[in-house]
Design a protein around this nucleic acid. Structure first.
Lengths: 218, 218
DNA sequence: ATTCTGACATTTGTATACATTTATGTTGAG
DNA sequence: CTCAACATAAATGTATACAAATGTCAGAAT
């Protein structure tokens, strides 16, 4: 879209991801406009888009709030992701080209060489992105983008231990094998399990956070 | 959302569904504003929402167009629908209440008594809607709404022959059985097949239309 | 004839002013 | 003291004016 509108969209999204605005908090158009350095018009555009991304909800009062997904929402979210991303992987396997496989292997190698969390994070998303694009369905892409942007992934990956990262890499490696063999069901199974596992890692992190309760300073 | 914004959204959607604006055609904000009897501001809001619904696309030129899904898009669309609605049915079966089953049976009975196309259309969507709501996942609901709104359903149902309607009713009846027994996998299978079949009915209609080519009037 | 260029028209993007709706707070009756 | 009703404040919704970008077309240069 246009400049100011994009700035507003990205800025607000960042504010949510960096949790400078907390889940459940109200979003006031004028405040946001000031923070983004634009007028209310592009902010409204951005809010409508964020609503479609499930990051913001507009209540009956007409007020906008940052969504605050409950335990069940998270579960459902991962389930949907597993289903859709499984489908994407299956399609990618069916339409796999040598070039795709080459690029996936390249991406893998980079993470294997440096298993630090930030590097993992970076290449993890490009890896998933490559598969998603290879599936060749624009609707699938945007639905998954919306689901994934649900803050969750971000926090999940930060909670990954070195062993969990190694496990993740193993699964990615297997996925490349499946795609290289053009075996769509194998690909589906691998990624489906991959995401289910990510869910439980995240779930445990959540429990720990709940245990210490308040979590006052950020 | 707000009044004028809603009017714009619904009006434009209607214009697309009634094909007063054809797939591939450009949408000019000022024209739409006049047709909707509102200013450009709520029209823009509506366009952003319709973009999220996959009904409108904004190209690099910043111009908006009615999407024109190709054969492959339609196929992918129905596949996604089958997957998501299968999931919804499975969840509905898991959480089925006597009240839900009662209302589904009620809805069924109404169609059985009057199998005309418009009545079928009407109750068909309430039937699917009941199941969707019973699944209890707001994200699932809006994703499916967006997929379904893809014009397709509308045209499909119009192409239904009396025998196809009877078949559809049989499948609905079986689905209620599955839900009543709380058998999620049964429910998933039934609805999944139900939608795949709808796809092929639609697909054949498309072929016939292609055969006569232009389809000028209307 | 072709293509480049620049003026003009069209369309979208943004800011702002004002209208409408919703929340808040205060007062007074019971 | 409670609660309703009104007044006031705050936030969102809409329209309009103007800015920026995009598209169109005629005429000149080659």
């Amino acid at each position: 879209m246009s400049k100011a509108s994009d700035i507003a969209y990205e800025t607000i999204k960042s504010l949510i991801f960096e949790s400078e605005i907390r889940p459940g908090e109200q979003l006031k158009e004028e405040d946001l406009a000031e923070k983004c350095g634009v007028s209310r018009t592009p902010v409204r555009d951005a809010l409508v888009r964020l609503e479609a991304d499930f990051l913001v909800e507009k209540r009956e009062n007409q007020r906008s709030f940052v969504v605050d997904p409950g335990r069940e929402d998270i579960d459902e979210l991962f389930t949907l992701r597993a289903m859709l991303e499984g489908h994407a992987a299956a399609r990618a396997a069916e339409r796999a080209t040598p070039d795709l496989v080459r690029r996936l292997r390249e991406c893998l190698k980079l993470v294997e060489n440096d298993q630090s969390v930030p590097v993992f994070l970076e290449h993890n998303s490009t890896f998933h992105r490559l598969i998603l694009d290879a599936a060749g369905s624009s609707r699938l892409v945007s639905m998954l983008e919306r689901l994934i942007s649900q803050a969750v992934l971000h926090h999940t990956a930060n909670a990954y231990s070195p062993e969990q990262i190694r496990q993740s890499i193993r699964e990615h490696r297997e996925l490349v094998e499946a795609i290289d063999h053009g075996d769509s069901e194998w690909a589906r199974s691998v990624i489906s399990g991959h995401i289910r596992r990510a869910f439980h890692v995240y779930s445990e992190t959540l429990s720990e956070l709940d245990a210490v309760s308040g979590d006052p300073a950020n």
